[in-house]
């Protein structure tokens, strides 16, 4: 199942250009899977009673799951996860995951800056849940 993925060409890019957009469905299953894979077993990510007891509006997605899924938009664009050299986010709003419907996270990536000398592109990611941004300053520097 090898697919040849040609790298985006730096000179063909423009700041502001949309590089991709993906909808991620985060279900309770996704949270359990992420808990196991990452080792973060904080109960607010899978137990309604614990979330309610600490005053949360519901079970929340791990911030690191939102961060990890969001960058996939940049990964898919460049075709190689190893080319993300610097990635940062700020956690600004929680993603509440409904027990049956889950939560839909819409991530859009845009070219934020181009560094021709370093041969890198900064991809600015916007992650939206229920019409609100959940990540601030979400930036992935991609080596082309």
């Amino acid at each position: 199942m090898m697919t040849t993925h040609s790298l985006p060409k730096l000179i063909e890019l423009e700041v502001g250009q949309v590089i991709g957009s993906t909808e991620f469905l985060l279900t309770r299953d996704s949270l359990v899977r992420y808990a196991g894979a990452s080792g973060d077993f904080n109960q607010i990510h899978y137990r309604d009673d614990v979330a309610a007891a600490v005053g949360l509006p519901g079970v929340l997605a791990h911030g690191m799951l939102t961060m990890g899924a969001a960058v996939q938009v940049a990964v898919d664009w460049v075709g190689d996860a190893g080319r993300i050299v610097d990635y940062q986010v700020r956690f600004t709003k929680p993603v509440v995951v409904h027990p049956t419907d889950g939560a839909v996270l819409t991530v859009t990536g845009k070219v934020g800056a181009i560094d021709a000398e370093a041969h890198t592109v900064r991809v600015d990611l916007e992650a939206v849940f229920e019409d609100a941004k959940v990540l601030g300053k979400a930036q992935a520097v991609v080596r082309l």
Binding site: S30, A37, S38, V71, Q72
Partner: peptide, 21 residues
Amino acid sequence: KIREFAHAVKSSNPVNFDVFA
């Protein structure tokens, strides 16, 4: 572990799953 984590963050990037890739 890499495959498990990649699956969990909803990656479909071959370099995370396929040694040949």
